[in-house]
Simulated scan of single mutants.
Amino acid sequence: MLSLKLPRLLSIHQVPKGYREQGILFGYRPPRSSAADCLLSAFQMTNETLNIWTHFVPAWYFVWTLVGRLRGPGGWEDPQARPLLAYLLTCCIYPLASSCAHTFSTMSTHARHLCYFFDYAALSMYSLGSALAYSAYIFPTEWVNSTFHRCYVPIAVFNTVISTSLSCYSRFLEVERPGLSKASRTLAFAYPYLFDSIPLFYRLYMCAAQRCTDAAILLHYKHTALAFLTCFIFASHLPERLAPGHFDYIGHSHQVFHVCGIVGTHFQLEAILTDMAERQGRLLPPSPLPSALQTLGSMGVCAVVSLAVIGRCSLALRFLTEPLPREKPHGH
Results as ranks from 00 to 15, higher is better:
219 L>M: 01
89 L>N: 01
199 P>G: 06
23 G>E: 00
109 T>M: 13
270 E>N: 04
195 F>W: 13
21 E>C: 08
97 A>V: 11
149 H>W: 05
257 F>R: 10
135 S>G: 11
82 R>Y: 06
217 I>W: 03
320 L>E: 14
40 L>Q: 15
14 Q>D: 15
110 H>N: 08
17 K>P: 03
223 H>E: 11
39 L>C: 09
149 H>T: 00
75 G>P: 11
252 H>Q: 12
325 P>K: 03
287 S>H: 03
326 R>S: 15
231 C>Q: 09
322 E>R: 11
300 G>I: 01
222 K>G: 13
218 L>K: 02
36 A>L: 11
261 G>A: 05
165 S>F: 15
323 P>C: 01
240 E>N: 06
25 L>G: 00
155 I>E: 08
109 T>Q: 14
207 C>N: 14
287 S>N: 08
102 H>T: 08
276 M>D: 04
212 C>E: 10
193 Y>Q: 05
79 P>M: 02
248 D>I: 14
72 G>Q: 01
109 T>W: 04
81 A>W: 00
165 S>P: 01
266 H>K: 08
212 C>D: 07
252 H>N: 05
146 S>M: 03
185 R>F: 10
182 K>A: 14
301 V>P: 04
39 L>M: 13
248 D>A: 12
120 Y>N: 07
330 H>Q: 12
167 S>F: 01
265 T>S: 13
301 V>T: 06
76 W>I: 15
46 T>K: 08
269 L>F: 12
172 F>M: 13
312 R>S: 11
237 H>P: 09
289 L>C: 07
234 F>M: 14
262 I>Q: 08
79 P>D: 05
117 F>T: 07
151 C>S: 12
232 F>G: 08
10 L>Q: 15
44 Q>L: 10
286 P>Q: 07
292 A>L: 12
218 L>V: 13
8 R>I: 01
240 E>A: 06
76 W>M: 14
259 V>L: 13
77 E>T: 11
80 Q>V: 01
95 P>C: 10
72 G>R: 02
297 G>Y: 04
169 Y>N: 15
5 K>R: 01
